[in-house]
């Protein structure tokens, strides 16, 4: 049974992965025996994260690192994170960099433009606060139109591929980029 570990920026990201996992099961996009576990990246870019990553790479079939670029260069962020991935595990680790933050998925799904700071955008439109992220995400993808649109968002597509495809080799190239 394939096991995937997802590292997120914070607890809210972990909540989102939980919701997504359930959705993928109900949509039959994820084989029933696929196991996905997620946790927030510990504090600093540190040896702690390195060790967590190394352990996850050893014990899981695939590891996804889902990070936010906050408008910084996405390449730069990807390179920064890939430093933590031990060479012999490069093929297992898949780094996905959001342009700003996860909230951009929600904007995209709803057909809105993604400008600076999606969370600020949501604050204006729905009195959004961070703790609502998993719930807002759930409500968004429960709308089939939004869900279909989101599946076309490049970053999200990347994540979907990583979570649903049981193909180790396919991801090696992304890390090398």
């Amino acid at each position: 049974m394939p096991k995937i570990f997802v590292f997120t920026e914070d607890s809210y990201g972990v909540g989102v992965i939980e919701i997504l996992k359930r959705k993928l099961h109900t949509e039959r996009m994820l084989p029933w025996d696929h196991r996905i576990k997620s946790d927030a990246i510990p504090g600093l870019c540190s040896s702690k994260f390195k060790r967590a990553l190394e352990t996850a790479c050893e014990e899981y079939d695939k590891v996804v690192i889902l990070v936010d670029a906050h408008g910084e260069g996405e390449k730069h962020v990807k390179n920064r994170e890939s430093v933590h991935v031990p060479d012999h595990y490069k093929g297992k680790a898949h780094i996905i960099v959001n342009k700003y933050e996860i909230e951009e998925w929600i904007l995209y799904a709803k057909g809105h433009k993604i400008r600076n700071k999606p969370s600020e955008e949501l604050k204006k439109s729905i009195r959004y606060e961070k703790h609502m992220l998993p719930d807002v995400f759930r409500r968004t993808i429960d709308n089939s139109k939004c869900w279909r649109r989101l599946m076309n968002y490049a970053k999200f597509k990347e994540l979907l591929k990583a979570l649903t495809r049981n193909d180790r080799e396919a991801y090696a190239f992304i890390v090398q980029a």
């Binding site: 504090g43 600093l44 870019c45 540190s46 040896s47 702690k48």
Partner: peptide, 13 residues
């Protein structure tokens, strides 16, 4: 600078 130090030393915070 702490982050770089931790990586250099291989220790946790």
């Amino acid at each position: 600078e702490i982050s770089a130090k931790l990586n250099k030393l291989g220790v946790t915070f």
